[in-house]
């Protein structure tokens, strides 16, 4: 499995966020994205997820399922947690697990992120960190080879960070790919990082 980008450019609101961007990573590799605010880390992730059109360049994903787009084989963990506050914790994760054809039942995914005791609590009562944990449950409930993570460490406490690191190591060991925008160290080994920013 191999994911690469050549000459990628992204335009938002008439402004060129980045251009001429190249990267490639293989199965089992992680690519941290670093750079100052506004350098286009989030835009690159959304572009890879298929949520933003690329202004130029091409993305190649080899070894995945040929009839599916990259976005359909990727997990995207954005700044929003995609939770409905009216639903309980279990109802939230079970919905995504069914809707995205997950392989793990909702309560097993909750156990994996340490939220099983809150299964029947409405998501409205969760703290920011607990909401984030619930988003992480999606990563284990549904098997997708590419993980696009936007500041995955944000508002996570130590124990949750450990869970996340273990999840990422596991994913890489199984031959997954991770691209993560981050300010803090991810707690996994990565060969190199991709630094975004106009001052290149």
């Amino acid at each position: 499995m191999m994911l690469s980008g050549k000459g990628l450019a992204c335009q938002r609101g008439g402004r060129m966020v980045f251009s001429g961007l190249d990267f490639s990573l293989r199965a089992g590799q992680a690519l941290p994205l670093t750079g100052p605010n506004g350098a286009g880390k989030s835009s690159l992730l959304r572009l890879l997820a298929g949520l933003l059109p690329a202004a130029a360049g091409r993305i190649d994903f080899k070894g995945g399922s040929p009839e599916r787009s990259l976005g359909e084989q990727a997990h995207y963990l954005g700044h929003q947690d995609a939770l409905k506050t009216q639903l309980t914790v279990l109802e939230n994760i079970s919905f995504w697990a069914s809707y995205m054809r997950g392989t793990l039942a909702g309560d097993d995914a909750l156990t994996a992120v340490g939220l099983c005791e809150l299964a029947n609590v409405p998501a409205a009562y969760l703290s920011a960190g607990q909401r984030r944990r619930l988003s992480l449950a999606r990563l284990v409930a549904i098997q997708r080879p590419v993980w696009l993570l936007d500041e995955p460490n944000a508002s996570l406490d130590d124990s949750a960070q450990k869970i996340l690191s273990a999840m990422m190591r596991d994913h890489l060991k199984r031959g997954g790919l991770i691209i993560a925008a981050t300010h803090a160290p991810l707690g996994i080994k990565s060969a190199r990082e991709l630094r975004l920013g106009r001052a290149r």
Binding site: A49, G50, L51, G71, E72, Y76, A82, M100
Partner: peptide, 14 residues
């Protein structure tokens, strides 16, 4: 859209 669910909905094969 506000809670981010739309992004995930766009990323499925449905």
């Amino acid at each position: 859209q506000e809670d981010g669910s739309l992004d995930l909905i766009l990323m499925t094969d449905t």
